[in-house]
Design a protein around this nucleic acid. Structure first.
Lengths: 171, 171
DNA sequence: GTAACTTAATTAAGTTTCTGATACAGTTCG
DNA sequence: CGAACTGTATCAGAAACTTAATTAAGTTAC
């Protein structure tokens, strides 16, 4: 084992793409579309958000988010609350039922990953464990750097308005 | 760095979820839907496939794939060819133009990951590099397992203990 | 060899989800 | 206060997906 392995960005990218594919193709659980599940995941992870914030992070129009939230509200998966700091805005939060769906999907992923990890060698598991903090920090760096990245802005072609998707500092 | 770190499946799951989110919300480059991009990615990675194979891996119906391939064919991103080994089947392959789209997206991801990796410490990069082979093997183990057990089938509605709320008005 | 069954892809019709445009209420600023 | 701006909602139409029915090629049984 070389002590100074150079990190292959291509290799990392490839592996992460494969895991992405693996995670996405998982469900079908209930009649929930991909975007719907993503919204629930975002709300469960980041806490209540405005409709415009959701539209930005999910890369669909605000109109689509309004309609989706209306539907999810009817099904009892999310709730609308007025934003105390702005009379126009609505804060969408996930309900216990909605969080249960997110948790259920996570449990499935964990079960699958656990099964795969069991078939690795002890050394392989240790190597992954040792890399976890570094990987987590990459994610951390990413989320704090969104304001800088020019890629984010360029991506949202055709989106109306699109102010910079600021972080959810409200919690 | 501890020598005998136990692998936290929860931590691994969480990090991979975050990367997934990071990868998906990336572009919007050329008005292509998520499923469409996924199909191109699959074809570019795995080579020519039948429509039924694509339907299975993308978790949409065969009919949807037929329509999507027809559209992609008109746009010059994929090609249909008869399967020499089976007169009923069609082999779909990605064109150079289609591959260019996949490569472009990958390049963006690599650029972003590279930028993040630059801000890690040397030790962190080394840790990730050391874990890459093990992560790749997990993906490998996963894909070989698919052929055996049809997890992809609707059976995965398991949701592991989380009783999903009953549908209120389904309409 | 042909009748019955299976498999691969297409077509048609109907449903869900998204976009674009517009309306409207609340906020900000002169 | 009035003008400009921002956050949501609504509606018509487009796009993507599903189910069901159809065509065609391959397989099995007699």
């Amino acid at each position: 084992m070389p002590e100074f392995a150079e990190l292959s960005i291509a290799g990392l990218t490839r592996v992460l793409e494969d895991f992405t594919r693996m995670h996405i193709r998982l469900p079908a659980e209930r009649r929930l579309s991909f975007t719907t599940l993503s919204v629930l995941h975002t709300l469960a992870g980041d806490g209540p958000k405005r409709l415009t914030e959701l539209a930005g992070s999910e890369q669909v129009t605000q109109s689509a988010i309004t309609q989706m939230v209306t539907k999810l509200e009817r099904e009892g998966l999310v709730e609308r609350h007025p934003d105390p700091s702005d009379g126009r805005a609505v804060l969408v939060s996930v309900t216990a039922a909605g969080a249960a769906i997110v948790d259920g999907r996570r449990a499935e992923r964990m079960a699958r990953l656990s099964e795969l990890a069991d078939r690795l060698t002890e050394a392989e598991r240790t190597a992954i464990a040792a890399a976890l903090p570094a990987l987590a920090r990459m994610v951390e760096l990413h989320s704090t750097a969104i304001g800088d990245s020019p890629i984010e802005r360029e991506a949202c072609a055709g989106d109306s308005g699109t102010d910079t998707p600021r972080d959810s500092a409200r919690r």
